[in-house]
Amino acid sequence: MPMSIVLSIVMLAAFALLLAAFIAWRKGLPRKQIGLLLLLALVMAVNVAIWTVPDSEGTAPIDKVD
C-alpha cells in the first residue's frame, strides 16, 4: 500500500477521533476519555506532519520512501 494512502487514512482517523471527542463531550462522558481521544488525534496528526513536512534541504521523509 503506498505511503500516501496510509497517511490519508491516518488523517481521516484523526478527524474521526476529533468528532468522537466532540460527541463524547456533548454526551457528558468523563473528561479523561475525551482527553485521551484528543491526545490520540494530536499524536496521529503530528505523525503525519513528521512524514510530510520538508526539512531544511527541501525534501520530506515521504519522498525518500520507495
Rank of each mutant, 00 (worst) to 15 (best):
A20T: 13
T59G: 00
R26C: 05
A60T: 12
M3V: 14
I34H: 08
M1E: 09
A41Y: 08
L37Q: 14
R31H: 01
A16R: 13
G28A: 06
L36M: 14
L39C: 11
L42K: 11
W25D: 04
A24P: 04
A14N: 05
G58H: 07
L19F: 04
V43W: 06
A45I: 15
I50S: 10
P54H: 06
I5H: 09
I34M: 10
I5Y: 01
T59R: 15
L37P: 06
T52R: 13
M3N: 07
M1V: 10
L19S: 09
S56T: 09
A45D: 01
P61S: 11
W25Q: 14
A49W: 08
A21T: 04
I34P: 01
F15I: 07
A49F: 09
V43R: 07
N47Y: 10
R31T: 10
V48E: 04
L19A: 13
L40C: 14
P30E: 05
R26H: 03
V43G: 07
A41F: 04
L38S: 07
P61M: 12
A14T: 04
S4G: 02
A21E: 04
G35L: 05
V46H: 05
E57V: 01
V53P: 07
G28I: 02
I23A: 12
P30N: 14
V53F: 10
E57S: 15
R26T: 08
L17P: 02
L19N: 09
A45Y: 01
L38M: 14
V48M: 09
Q33I: 08
P54E: 01
I62R: 15
P2L: 02
V53S: 08
I5T: 11
L19T: 11
M44P: 02
S56N: 10
L39Q: 12
M3F: 04
K27P: 06
A49I: 09
T52K: 14
R26D: 07
F15P: 00
A24Q: 10
L12I: 02
I50G: 01
R26Q: 14
I50D: 08
A45W: 03
A20D: 05
I23L: 13
L38Y: 00
Q33F: 04
A41E: 06
A14Y: 07
G58Q: 05
T59C: 00
L38W: 02
I5Q: 12
L40R: 10
V53K: 13
I34T: 11
R31W: 03
L17H: 03
N47P: 01
L17Q: 07
K32T: 13
M11R: 15
I34Y: 06
M1P: 10
S4N: 13
I50C: 11
M11W: 01
I9L: 13
I34N: 07
L36K: 14
I62Y: 06
L39T: 15
L39I: 11
F22I: 13
L12Y: 00
A21M: 06
A45Q: 12
F15C: 06
V6C: 03
A16Q: 12
A20V: 03
P2W: 00
I50N: 12
L36W: 13
I50Q: 12
A41D: 02
L39H: 03
L17G: 05
V6P: 00
S8M: 08
A13L: 13
